Amino acid sequence: MSQASATRTAKKPRPEMKRLLLVDDHPIMRHGLVQLISAEPDLEVCAEAGNAADGMVAVTSRKPDLVIADLTLPDKHGLEFIKDIRALHPDLQILVLSMHDESLYAERALRAGARGYLMKETAAENLIHAVRRVLGGDIYLSDKMASVMLELLSGQRKSAASAGIDRLTDRELEVLQLIGSGRGTRQIADQLHVSVRTIDAHRAHIKDKLQLPDGNALVRYAVRWVENQQGTV
């Protein structure tokens, strides 16, 4: 090798490393993501967290470039976690990686402040592409979901928010999910750090929006809905 070639080789710049924080309550899932991300020369996992509280600590202490977060966390719903991050770190990019149906949650995640939504079933094929899109300042959605969003923006499709479960607020949807998972009113109040009266108000609003006659009908609906969500995974 000539001296000039050796000089060019020596001066070849190393790629700038982008630091990623993983927030997911499944250690096996996080391990798989670490292996996938670590294979990229310019990406590294700087920290992992199994819940929202630890995730917020890691955001502050490790200063990642991107947070990859699940929506199902043991101490706080992922949508609320996203809102917390955006309130304290408005420039931090967030990519949701979830088992939940994108048709129901992708738009909510973007409204909360995320810059992308990826379903776990397609993570192996699409995660790195999604990460690079979001780090590059773009929004990542599946082709199907992107078409839906464009149709909504262009007025060619009516918003789903006018009917059914899509009329629920993010908090009401979270309460519905907890009801369907077998939580009682007091348990839900304790988990969400609100009063029982607040949960009762959410239950009443959910019943009205879903046109359910009473509390028993609400519980039956919630249980079926949670089972259907799990069945799509």
Rank of each mutant, 00 (worst) to 15 (best):
P90V: 05
D200Q: 10
Q211K: 12
D42P: 04
H31F: 02
N228M: 08
V226A: 11
L210C: 07
V59G: 06
D65C: 06
P74H: 11
N228V: 03
M29Y: 00
G116R: 05
Q187G: 13
A161L: 11
H31T: 14
R186V: 05
D42Y: 03
R171N: 14
G231Y: 04
R111S: 10
G136C: 10
I28R: 00
Q229A: 13
R197C: 05
R220C: 08
A4S: 06
R167N: 05
Q229C: 09
L88Q: 14
T122Q: 12
S147F: 13
S2D: 09
V96R: 09
G182S: 08
V57I: 12
L178I: 03
V131N: 06
V196N: 04
V219N: 14
V233F: 01
E40G: 05
K63G: 00
R14T: 07
Q156Y: 14
V226R: 15
A69V: 10
V59S: 07
L212G: 10
E80V: 04
H129P: 03
K158G: 07
R183T: 03
V34L: 01
P13V: 10
L192I: 03
A160G: 15
C46W: 02
T72D: 13
R14G: 01
D75R: 11
K144D: 12
E172F: 14
G180V: 04
T72S: 15
H89S: 12
A114V: 03
I37E: 04
D200L: 05
L66C: 07
M29P: 00
K83E: 12
G113V: 06
A217P: 15
D166R: 04
